[in-house]
Amino acid sequence: MKRDSHRWKWILVSPALVVLILAASGPLLIVAVYSVLSPGNMGGVAWDFSTEAWFRVFFKRDIFDPETVTLNADHLAVFQRTLWLSFQTTLICAALGFPTAWFIATRPVNRRMVWLFLITVPFWTNLLIRTFAIQELIRNTGTVNTVLVWLGLIREPVDLMYTDFAVLLGMSYVFLPLMVLPLYAAMDKLDFRLVEAGYDLYASRLQVLWHVILPLVKPGFIAGSILVFIPSIGAYVTPRVLGGGRSMMMGNLIGLQFGQGRNWPLGSALAMVLLVIVVVALIFYLRITTRETGGRDGRH
């Protein structure tokens, strides 16, 4: 009887499972195969097995002497910048997202929906347009510089465009709601009587935050961090517009190989590297964040 219902369950979920497997692993398989082929003349791939793409992800051959091999510092710099900027974006989103979510969660119930709705408003506009709006703010003749010069705080406009700062600003802005929403969901479930119990037992505001609220909304932080970190790693539009060629991220590097670079195998190999970075970062992150709670009480 038990086994019977078990079998039924599998039969019932099988269509969804098939779609999932095909949709998720199909493209991945194509990318994996492409990464071990040779580049075609006009883009695309030639069906000759080659590990050259993987080699070139990490190493560079001297133009005149192909036997001289050096580490591909450009690529490594992009990897490093991608990780670092994504990490900082996650931190900034967490730092800004917490008070925002807290603000919403402490409003009267009927107002919360309005605030949540407002949080999602930026999603209605195309990402590219929003990114250009930021550009409009921070370029040399943009709003920020104009106002600062006019106030006399600076004499010359500060170069903000095409810096890591610009990319960071853009990504934090774009991904903030992805942190706020899961944090809000966690706070919504938070029993505020526990906060009172904390105060009752002589905890200061900061202590209540640290010992009661943060541990209880941790699942929201974990979900939010994952939701922000992963798209940050793969960001394309924001670093393209605000970082240009000077502050390139992995998404741009990959895009380049499929466009001007006309090296699809290299692009595919880079995409695989990106995937590995995300998986490794996720495993590492979940390891450290769920260590003391343990699997059994993960519910809390």
Partner: peptide, 30 residues
């Protein structure tokens, strides 16, 4: 948190992420 008054709440309001011992020691720790 400045009043020397403690409450046993109607629903207990025990901290779910702490053990029994940590719950009991919380006030003194603070």
């Amino acid at each position: 948190n400045r009043r020397l008054v403690n409450t046993v709440f109607q629903n207990y309001a025990l901290f779910p992420h702490m053990t029994v011992a940590q719950n009991i020691g919380f006030g003194l720790k603070m």
